[in-house]
Design a protein around this nucleic acid. Structure first.
Lengths: 177, 177
DNA sequence: CTTGAACGATAACAATTGTTAAGAAAAAGA
DNA sequence: TCTTTTTCTTAACAATTGTTATCGTTCAAG
């Protein structure tokens, strides 16, 4: 998906969108509830996490200019299996599902959205492969190379959880470098 | 995506498809090459794997009645970053990308394919979350509960690789139960 | 049927990570 | 500013996994 196509899609989706400010620590999408909004993160950082026997597991970070929704919940109207919250003060744009349904009559939108889905699918496949392939220490090094901003803007215990290790272990790995 | 929608999509895609038999151990999609076919696995089992410093990492198994393609390679015409091979004698249906492009003019197909992409996206998100959430031993137990046929039909060292551990460690885990 | 390769179990030791706890530093709130 | 909370580091020990090697067993090709 080219940058131009991305901009066109954003224009379709968020040309008439509402804008809202959220303080750090606000839950945008809540585990167990149905989420029927499609979002664009204009400013800030978000974190996706699930509850695992009382322990929070962080599985995703979202940065500026990122489109997102709770895919399964949004498209199938099912309770969401995870939460998404702000870890900085953030600005979000959003549209409701009904507004999105209206867009689906537009063939040009449909084609763009198709491309968006394909790019997301490819991304998640690559994320999954990378996670199977690499051990925690390698995952840390790659993350540090590819997205150093994650390590600068996000508390380390969230990063540790995202890497699938404990904060103690991450601290040790960092110290080894 | 309902079963009916799935059948409709399969009919669109593979109504006029070629059918081919492959012996066990045949490479269907080869790492480094561009794959421009969309497949349906009628019979057999496939395995997706990548080369990681000389070590094979298995990241996916495909079973009967499964649609698949090398997403990134197929849609973006890039060299594929992994291989897919048969681990049993298998029967595949396939169409070329040009045939698929013709289908894209059909609005009904487009809608179905959209739903397919959404279902795949949701699946991969869940796979990724599960992998971040669970430790190797838990992953094994869940796999055993959800897909015991994997453990019966697939050599254990492939399963171990898929779980992100060594065959030795998998053998130990199995012995602990 | 025979032979070599592939597969799985086990053992011993190394390396890594988890757990718990304590303390220092930084950030947030009053 | 002062206090409280959060975050990060470090240490000691436990648990898990990795590595290497050996040994039957099974599978497959000839």
């Amino acid at each position: 998906m080219t940058e131009q196509e991305q901009n066109q899609l954003n224009q379709y989706l968020f040309g008439l969108a509402k804008k809202e400010n959220y303080k750090k620590g606000t839950i945008i999408i809540k585990e167990g509830e149905v989420s029927s909004k499609f979002y664009y993160l204009e400013k800030g950082i978000l974190r996706g996490w699930t509850n695992n026997d009382g322990k929070e597991i962080t599985f995703q970070f979202l940065f500026e200019e990122q489109l997102f929704c709770a895919t399964e919940s949004f498209f199938y109207n099912t309770p969401c299996s995870y939460s998404i919250e702000t870890i900085e003060d953030s600005v979000l744009l959003y549209i409701d599902k009904e507004e999105m349904n209206l867009l689906q009559n537009d063939k040009s939108f449909e084609k763009l959205f198709n491309k968006y889905l394909i790019s997301r699918l490819a991304l998640y496949q690559n994320l999954l492969i990378a996670r199977i392939q690499d051990k925690p220490e390698v995952r840390y090094r790659k993350l540090f190379q590819e997205k150093p901003e994650i390590l600068l803007r996000i508390p380390q215990h969230y990063v540790a959880s995202y890497l699938g290790i404990t904060p103690v272990s991450l601290s040790r790995i960092r110290n080894r470098q």
